[in-house]
């Protein structure tokens, strides 16, 4: 008999946290100066928008779909935030709300016409990019004061990014994992027919999940502008890949509704730190993306090993 600590389920659940802990230990060992308030703040503040985008992707993954437009959408939000939200807040707010509505509509369209989400969202990525270019043809704009203030907040003792990440993880965890309707939302990923047979509307569930993805994508774009203070249509092009990678690193499955908000946040932080780690190792930034891919494959391979061990039991 194996002890419960080595049970496949436990192993799978702690894998993201263990990877993060190992990575942090390695960074502290390589570069002890990072083990400080400023050091952590610098390394982690870019993790906030990525974590929010990862959460957005997780909502879509939870209902067995994939969003290839999240990066372009975050770019769109960033452009709106850096321009209209500063110059004419009502217009800016309307544009952001419209973004969420479009996401909800996509959920409905994909469900009603039974469309492959990757083709639809790939098309949408061009729409978002195009609109962003129309709003902000050249990099520029400024951040609304309050967002900049929030993102540069100097919290006592614990750096702001850590607090923010914790708050995001807890809020989403409570909403999705602990509420009564949250269990219906997740159930729709696990066994859609059963949810339908029990009398729930799958259309409504898809719309809610896509709208939630729109909300968190919006938060990601706003947070990003708070950090960079100027916008660009291509500012978040990498977020599509990072969000998928982050969600998977965090233990989310591609199908079956098995997701973990805390894991997704941890996955996003791990990916952000992996960048710092490579630069501390003096590895050329050329290999940054490749390292993301390698980490992803490594984690998936570990998971495949655990699953195979489970089958053998």
């Amino acid at each position: 008999m194996t002890s419960t600590l080595l049970a496949p389920r436990t192993l799978r659940a702690i894998l993201p946290a263990v990877s993060l802990a190992l990575l942090l230990a390695a960074i502290f060992w390589l570069q002890p100066r990072t083990m400080s308030y400023t050091g952590l703040n610098l390394m982690l503040n870019l993790a906030i928008p990525i974590a929010l985008a990862t959460i957005a992707q997780m909502f879509v993954l939870c209902v067995n779909e994939l969003d290839l437009s999240i990066g372009a959408y975050v770019g769109y939000v960033a452009c709106v935030t850096a321009t209209w939200l500063v110059e004419s807040p009502p217009l800016g707010i309307a544009a952001l709300m419209a973004g969420i509505l479009v996401y909800a509509g996509l959920g409905a369209l994909i469900h009603l016409r039974n469309l492959p989400s990757i083709v639809v969202t790939l098309g949408m990525s061009f729409v978002w990019l195009g609109v962003a270019v129309l709003i902000l043809p050249r990099p520029g704009g400024t951040s609304p004061e309050w967002i900049r203030w929030l993102m540069k907040l100097h919290t006592p003792v614990v750096p702001f990014p850590i607090i923010a990440a914790t708050v995001i993880a807890i809020v989403v965890h409570v909403a999705l994992m602990r509420t009564a309707y949250g269990s219906i939302l997740r159930g729709a990923g696990g066994n859609p027919r059963a949810i339908e047979r029990a009398g729930w509307s799958l259309l409504k569930i898809k719309v809610v999940m896509f709208a939630l993805a729109g909300v968190f994508g919006m938060l990601a774009g706003m947070a990003l502008i708070g950090l960079t203070t100027s916008g660009d249509a291509n500012i978040a092009a990498r977020y599509t890949l990072l969000s998928i990678a982050g969600a998977i690193l965090g233990g989310c499955e591609f199908v079956g509704g098995r997701v973990s908000p805390a894991g997704a946040v941890i996955g996003a932080i791990t990916l952000t730190l992996a960048g710092s780690f490579l630069s501390f190792l003096r590895i050329s930034p050329d290999w940054q993306i490749g390292a993301t891919g390698a980490i992803l494959i490594l984690v998936l391979a570990l998971r495949a090993l655990i699953n195979r061990a489970e089958e053998r039991q």
Binding site: T179, A180, S183, R186, G187, G190, N191, A194, I195, A198
Partner: peptide, 24 residues
């Protein structure tokens, strides 16, 4: 017709829309 990704209690909830609110 159970959802494999949910707990036993959560699956009961799927079946009973009236179980909601605090302490569900």
């Amino acid at each position: 017709s159970l959802c494999p990704n949910l707990s036993v209690a959560e699956n009961a909830r799927v079946f009973h829309p009236s179980i909601r609110g605090m302490g569900w």
